[in-house]
Design a protein around this nucleic acid. Structure first.
Lengths: 242, 242
DNA sequence: TGACAATAGTGGCGATTAGCCAATAATAAA
DNA sequence: TTTATTATTGGCTAATCGCCACTATTGTCA
């Protein structure tokens, strides 16, 4: 390849000559509140599906976004006011019929955030609301967002089984009991107390930061923990066998 | 939302009015040959990166492809002549700089196929070649395909640890020793013979179909296996602890 | 025909881990 | 002081892992 022929080619290239699909990014944002797993939905103000509830999302801003991860983060921050949580890609869905406008592709992300710092923010964004996940099953969402949510939910379950994801939906510090509850809600399974504690304490992903009674609780004070340094990411911790 | 306003909206929508990224699909196709893990590359005949080796891939055909999975499969079949293998999505990468033409997005797939049925086909497609994966590290691939390949390789390693993926790169039937070799190559780790056999035989994913000496081998004949019915997909089988 | 080389498959065992359930500990409220 | 409530630890059985050596079955070659 010569430098010059490459240059000449680039000058002659015009992306609008080709028939390309619509591309967007959607996010399933999960949190825990009052012992329930909740998902953030927004009400669509525009066609198509005007008035329907949908996952937050939108198009890439080619001027401002250096990459699609930034697009996802931008959407997340604009809806929740929170950055720096767990945000990861789940899957990309693209087909001819999911959007009535055109052949359409979306990359689905999921995010986990603690409830507290966002609640007031959400109240201010009047078209956004937290829904308990079971309630959403009754709703008809825009586009194929019900299926997208199902995909994100599955990924959440699976990944929870061998990583320490649930620390991201808790306010810090947290007790082991709170953490176990979080695991159980995200995985939708009951866990053995002793096995759970053994695993997590041996895995060296938590650091004890004191003792206290978690908010609104009674009974004996619990040891409180935070993620150990450098354990923010997806550390491998299998929480129950097979 | 009224039926009529939705209709009116759709008529007025023209996808070419918006600035959208380029979208493509790429595939990392893995196989096993002569005890080596190999990847299929094609030589680019067009700009940009004309003359460079690249992962097979291309654009969605909005007329023919009902969805992006079909796009990936179409590319796979046209390069290898094989359908029906393991083909799954790895990740989607999109940013402003990966393609000199424009803001560009690609969805990366990976495929696993047995070597035999494809060898002759590949010979016929003169611009395609199997490369041992270590050799590719020396090569400069088109676009960001070196990074894409690295992503696929990582996914392959991780998934192999808790599924039965490697059965897809073997000709059938196969022996347990062959299967263990496949696991070891895909995971890039040595495994304990006894533990490996215990796991796989107890997991009920294999069906014994006879006995024989695998091609070109010596020594005692081995029991030969095929995947048990319904185990084609990603059965969970952890092959080694933590 | 009888070693020997090569590969497949099994036995056995100490150490670790999972799963289970009950006992003990610390606090607030009555 | 008692009781309710939640946290934490102890202890036991059964299953599993990792390790390594031993036995089994074939082809080959003197």
């Amino acid at each position: 390849m010569t430098q010059s022929s490459e240059q000449a080619f680039l000058k002659s290239y015009n992306p609008k000559e080709y028939d390309t699909p619509i591309y967007s990014v959607d996010i399933a944002i999960f949190t825990l509140d009052q012992g329930r797993l909740k998902v953030l939905l927004v009400e669509r103000g525009e066609h198509p599906f005007k008035g329907f509830w949908a996952l937050p999302g939108g198009f890439v801003d080619l001027k401002k976004d250096p990459d699609i991860h930034t697009t996802a983060r931008r959407k997340l921050v604009s809806k929740t006011g929170v950055d720096a949580p767990l945000l990861e890609q789940v899957s990309t869905i693209g087909n001819a019929h999911r959007d009535p406008r055109h052949w359409s592709i979306t990359t689905l992300y999921m995010a986990l955030i603690p409830y507290a710092p966002t609640a007031e923010f959400i109240e201010a964004v009047n078209e956004a609301r937290w829904f308990p996940i079971e309630e959403i099953e009754q709703l008809q969402l825009a586009f194929d967002h019900s299926e997208l949510l199902e995909l994100a939910r599955e990924r959440l379950k699976n990944k929870t089984a061998y990583t320490v994801l649930p620390i991201h939906v808790l306010k810090r510090p947290f007790s082991l009991t709170q953490l176990q509850k979080a695991f159980e809600l995200l995985m939708d399974t009951a866990l053995e107390k002793k096995s759970f504690r053994r695993r997590l304490l041996n895995a060296d992903v938590l650091k004890e930061v004191g003792e206290g009674i978690p908010e609104g609780g009674k009974g004996r004070p619990a040891a409180l923990y935070e993620p150990a340094d450098g354990s923010e990411s997806h550390l491998f911790v299998r929480v129950f066998g097979d």
